[in-house]
Design a protein around this nucleic acid. Structure first.
Lengths: 202, 202
DNA sequence: ACAATTAGCTTACAGATGTAAGCTAATTTT
DNA sequence: AAAATTAGCTTACATCTGTAAGCTAATTGT
């Protein structure tokens, strides 16, 4: 095995170890270099051969998380074409992800309002991607006036993200209720935005 | 001065010290007992005369933060009665609070999705209070059907909170833009919820 | 084949942390 | 007035942290 391959393998081991150590009770900021190294099976100081910082590792995790969600949404669009409601399908897909990859979602959720400005920016950038993609979709496929698509998309993404956060702590049937609630909220938004051809005075 | 008075005074010193040490770069979980005690002007171990835990202190802070916001909203309602738009006034009042007490707002924001389940529950409870109060208002004062008031209120509070989070990192004029955007979003919601006398099939 | 690079290791250190033990002095209670 | 309570202090300890220094051994480049 070539040296570069081995290095990449160790790098993945570090990333995987970090994801594995995230939990409902442990956010990225309370991860320790030593613990991550231990779980990755390397000496603490070897960590520096791969990342300058814990922060550099963290930003890598955020990137990976955003990537996963992006792929998921593509998959969701695929489902929509042959299936029914856009809103319902999107939210249900999203909820599946949240439940199935809760550590990944929690990372985004927490670092979005965390203590590190670079982390917040990184998460904001990822979320902005979803908003732009959704806005494009809204412009093409719905009655929403072009100039409001972005604002509507941002509201929708906010509500869905928040629903995901609620779902993390919820029992399965409470989760269904949350899904239901969110669908209603998004429909109101869509209806409201479509109805307001122009924003009314005051 | 009586002993109970002195004790209460020290307790406040601890609480104030904790609030003072929160910052954009430092959340509650990275506060240390020793540092808080130092800023409060007591020995580290004296802390335990007032709180069993750092957690107990943290929950106290969350309670105080919720209380402040509650008082603020009462004040906002007062403004509304003699003034104009409910939505605009509420959001502007909220934004003033966020900017003027950013440490307090950040505490709620972060612990809402933080690593401690008790903290999350405490914040969720505070937020739920706002939702219930807003839902009452919507039922009384708007065209929203009774059974949807709660769901609408939750969406509104979510969007406003999120706007507050965005505002924390924003420049003053970006902040105005955020306020504007949020007003639009809430109006769409109100319009949509009022328009859906009954939820449509699928 | 030899030299250079480098992934990873071991050892070591200085600093910070939470908290246990036991003391002092002042207020409260009786 | 005597006894009990208690807010706060000082000292001490074990633990964990990040990271610097220097070594080894294996892959790479020439």
């Amino acid at each position: 095995m070539t040296r570069a391959q081995q290095k990449e393998r160790t790098r993945r081991a570090i990333i995987d170890a970090a994801f594995a150590q995230l939990s409902p009770d442990k956010g990225f900021s309370s991860l320790s270099l030593r613990e991550v190294a231990r779980e990755a099976g390397i000496a603490p100081t070897s960590f520096y051969r791969h990342f300058a910082d814990m922060d550099e590792l963290g930003l890598t995790l955020v990137d990976e998380a955003g990537l996963m969600l992006r792929q998921l949404l593509r998959q969701a669009r695929h489902r929509i074409e042959k299936n029914g409601s856009v809103i319902r399908t999107s939210i249900e897909t999203f909820m599946e992800f949240v439940v199935g990859n809760s550590n990944v979602f929690r990372l985004l959720l927490r670092e979005r309002s965390g203590t590190s400005a670079p982390f917040r920016r990184a998460v904001a950038r990822e979320i902005q991607h979803f908003c732009v993609e959704l806005a494009d979709y809204l412009r093409k496929e719905t009655a929403c006036p072009d100039e409001f698509a972005q604002v509507q998309a941002e509201a929708m993404v906010t509500l869905v993200f928040h629903a995901g956060a609620d779902a993390l702590d919820a029992s399965p049937d409470l989760r269904l209720q949350i899904t239901h609630r969110t669908i209603t909220q998004l429909r109101w938004l869509a209806h409201g935005a479509a109805g307001y051809g122009r924003r009314p005075k005051e």
